[in-house]
Design a protein around this nucleic acid. Structure first.
Lengths: 140, 140
DNA sequence: TTAGCTGCAAATTATTTGCATTCCG
DNA sequence: CGGAATGCAAATAATTTGCAGCTAA
């Protein structure tokens, strides 16, 4: 990732490193900017929230990070695994808010059909299922 | 929809009617709360933005309206067509921001697999493809 | 009549921006 | 050294809330 930055005359500052570490240590989670701010503060107390936002935007542009929105009023970020790796997908419980990931990638065919019909050049997709998780079903 | 409201002791006020009309007249668009506010104001100038938000949330709870987020910093709303009607999906151009709908519903099988494996009770889903529309491809 | 609604203004929350200062390469 | 990057505080923007007055059923 250092090379990703260097390629555009960007710098690897301690703040950026700290943020990367947090993101790496919380893989498979969906952190809000504020979550990341608080966590990063532990290792680097002087950091400001603006730096968090600026850094996350930068990382997202570089493809190192994915920004997600689950409709809870704030953006959520995660480290972007596998470069080309088609994004994993999410199961969201509408009762307790649990977010579970899964990795089936059965969308290729559908993607091809859509691309052909719409003449879109598709670069990515986002698939989510909403419903009730096992536990919440039990409680109902 | 009057009955939907009545069933919960809710009222069909002129404000709510005005908002429904706007939503109906702008099917297949994805209006922000502010868009809806400005449009509704034309027919009902005294309306306040808070009423717009409260009404949209209510309608979404009742299933009359879908709230969407496209990552542009604000929620977007659309009239919910076909009750059971599995939501249509979106193609989003990352260059010009165009949002195109399509209605293939080839997700049933996938949904079933996911439901079985995860023990989730799936009630809805959201599928989006990101990429470049025909026009933007031409310009590149 | 009376609970549900409304408009307004003030309060929140998430995110962005301006700027003087600091620091990586 | 010089442009990038940072922290801070102030500015935006979207959405929510409190409340006193209004109104649909």
């Amino acid at each position: 990732m250092k090379s990703l930055l260097a390629a555009k005359d960007l710098r690897l500052t301690p703040q950026r490193e700290a943020i990367i570490k947090i993101l790496l240590s919380k893989r498979n989670q969906h952190l809000s900017a504020d979550d990341i701010y608080l966590l990063t503060k532990e290792a680097y107390p002087e950091i400001g929230i603006a730096t968090i936002y600026r850094t996350l935007e930068l990382f997202a542009d570089l493809g190192m990070v994915n920004k997600l929105e689950f409709g809870d009023g704030c953006g959520r970020y995660e480290f972007n695994e596998g470069q080309e790796g088609h994004s994993h997908h999410h199961l969201i419980c509408e009762k307790c808010g649990a977010i579970i990931e899964f990795n089936e990638d059965l969308l290729e065919d559908l993607e091809e059909i859509i691309a052909r019909e719409s003449k879109f050049k598709i670069t990515n997709h986002c698939l989510r299922f909403y419903g009730y998780c096992e536990e919440c079903q039990a409680k109902m």
